[in-house]
Every structure is written in structure tokens, then in C-alpha cells.
Amino acid sequence: MISILTAHWSELVEGMKYTIGSSLIALIGSLILGIIFAMFVISPNRWLRIIGSVYVEIFRNIPLLVVAMFFYIVMPRFVPGLDGFKAGTIGLTIYTSAFIAETFRAGIESVAVGQMEAARSNGMTYLQAMKYIILPQATKIVIPPLGNQFVNLVKNSSVLAFLAGFDLMYQGNLIASTTFKTTDTYLAVGLLYLVMTMPLSYLMRYLEKRWSRLPTV
């Protein structure tokens, strides 16, 4: 395993760059999309609720690989320049956003109804109440499940390997098929995934502790 790491270090690092790049983009994208669709799902507006629910249910219940393949195979017909990395990252973003939307919905709904009533009675609009009162409290609640989603996201980014996305798993496949040292290669790849996900787990745990002390989030 050590020999694989040393002999193919540059390819593996290259793969990690793509994995981290894709994960970072998908993390930010899915967080934004997830919050927006969570707001849709709980919206007082019926049409927004329907759009939100359909989105969440569709992307939550289709395998990630199928979603990613859709963006890799079907979408380039309409959107030129959609390579494996981009298609996979978009698929990963959308797939993850459905889970994040569900996480935020549950978080928002666990904030007491009275908080919204108080904010509205204070003259705030629905969106102001969300922004200043509900979402900050919901965020604190969703940090632990959100941490799980982010770790899953990094692991799920290995789907890029199927779309020629140049990520760590892709490089691992290449190394394994050229060296035939499959066991060592995938052990090394697994280790490198751990190197990326463990700090993320600890970061989320740190945030969880820190935010629980803060008065205003």
C-alpha cells in the first residue's frame, strides 16, 4: 500500500484535487439549493410547496448514479461543454440538496411555532422572521445532521469515477487496472478518503459545540 502511495502520489493528489473541488462546489451549491427548497416545502404558498416537495421527492428517491448519469449523458445534448466533472458535480449538488432540504425542513419545523408568531406579531414579514429568528435557530439544530450530509457528499463524489470525472476514485481505478495491485490501491484510496472526511467530521463537531454557546448565530 505504501508503495502505491509513493509510486502514484502525483495521480492520487491530482484525484484528490478533483474530489475536493467537486465536493466544495457541491457543498456550497447544495446548501444554498437545500435551504431554498426547504423554504419552498414549508412555504405558505401552495404552488411553492408543491414545487418543493416534487423536487425533494424526485431527487431523494433516485440513485445518485442515475442522477449523475442523466447530467452526463442526456444534458450535454442541450448544454454543450458539460464534461464528466461538471455533470457529476451538478448531479451531486442536486442529489445532496434534496437531503439538505429535508434536514432544514425538519430543523425549521422543530423551532417552536411561538417564535414565528412572536416575530410576525412584532411586525416582521414572513421572510424577516425566517431570516432573523427561525433560520438561525434551525441552523443550530441541523448542524449535526448537516455534518453527516457533508461527509456523505465527499464520499458520494466518488460517483465521478463513472463519468470520467478525474477524481480520487477515478485515479484509483486507473492505478488498479495498470498495476493489478487492486487491494493495495483501494486501501490507499480508502485511506485518502478518510484523510479528507475525518477533518470535516471534526470541523462539524467543533461548530456544533461552538454554535451551541453563541447567543446569535
Partner: peptide
């Protein structure tokens, strides 16, 4: 009461 729990 319904004070804003996240505010001082």
C-alpha cells in the same frame, strides 16, 4: 412569552 431564543 415566546422571546426570541437566539437573541439577547
Amino acid at each position: 412569552f415566546n422571546l426570541y431564543a437566539n437573541k439577547t
